[in-house]
């Protein structure tokens, strides 16, 4: 296959970016999207040009490091038959001769570092605000001390599969980080271990979410539509319910 790529190039956070067009030849349909970028970068390097910077690590769809907007959808979800991360999108999803637009996540809370690389440390700070159970090492009771009903355990798990890639923010028209925040809220809210800190947790995590400059949620659903791990959209409603309930609690007053 031969592909025309239009890629966002931006030297650093302070400089202006622009779309640059490249031709990539001899692309195999078994290649992953990132391997196609590797191929282009090898070519650029030999020519003495700066290769395109993009984040990636595990290349098996679990670390959450990779993520670019492809043809207008995060992780190229619009081109993929199934939920996917960028590294698990394969070139067989494109046709020979296609023109593909590649852009970084765009959100105020995710400033561009270089080319397709953005700074997602705001997500870490949301977790720091309360996305944990306060249990010091060594102080845990026996694992069977608390039984957790299967349905709740499964719902906790569905939410816990979030990989923190940021696609939800990139796709959201409001650039809200609500699906990410809601995934953690729901994960811990479903488990007995998460109950003691439940009300304070949501107050603090949401305050940090807002302070980091993410937008509010308008229940449109773009986030869940691109989520590579299919975090349920209803986790956001869970977050809302918990927040409203917490307004009537004294925690964190």
């Amino acid at each position: 296959m031969n592909i025309t790529l239009r890629v966002w190039r931006q030297a650093n956070a302070a400089s202006e970016g622009r779309m640059v067009t490249y031709q990539v030849q001899d692309v195999s349909e078994d290649m992953s999207f990132l391997e196609m970028l590797d191929l282009l970068n090898e070519d650029l390097t030999v020519k003495g040009e700066e290769p395109i910077a993009f984040d990636h690590d595990c290349r098996e769809g679990i670390c959450g490091m990779c993520g670019v907007v492809i043809n207008g959808t995060a992780h190229g979800r619009g081109n993929s038959p199934v939920a996917t991360t960028t590294c698990q999108l394969h070139m067989r999803s494109f046709s020979d001769g296609a023109t593909i637009d590649v852009e970084p996540w765009r959100a105020g809370a995710f400033p561009v570092i270089k080319d397709l690389v953005v700074d997602r440390s705001a997500f870490d700070r949301i977790i720091q605000a309360g996305g944990y159970v306060s249990v010091n090492t060594g102080s845990a009771p026996d694992a069977h001390a608390n039984a957790v009903g299967k349905l709740k355990a499964d719902r906790a798990f569905d939410a816990a599969t979030c990989i923190g890639c940021g696609a939800c923010v990139a796709a959201c028209p409001n650039h809200s980080g609500m699906l990410f925040t809601a995934a953690k809220i729901t994960h811990l809210a479903m488990l007995p271990q998460g109950q003691p800190e439940r009300h304070l947790r949501i107050k603090k995590m949401l305050a940090t979410h807002d302070a980091e400059g993410f937008g509010g949620c308008t229940n449109i659903g773009e986030c869940a539509a691109v989520c590579p791990k299919e975090i349920p959209f209803d986790t956001i409603s869970q977050l809302n319910r918990d927040l409203i309930a917490s307004l009537f609690k004294r925690d964190g007053k």
């Binding site: 944990y132 159970v133 249990v135 090492t137 060594g138 102080s139 845990a140 009771p141 026996d142 694992a143 608390n146 039984a147 957790v148 299967k150 355990a153 906790a156 798990f157 816990a160 994960h187 811990l188 488990l191 271990q193 998460g194």
Partner: peptide, 12 residues
């Protein structure tokens, strides 16, 4: 024990 206390959702 430690991981369960942290809320790690092991299969049940």
């Amino acid at each position: 024990d430690q991981c369960v206390a942290q809320g790690v959702p092991f299969a049940r």
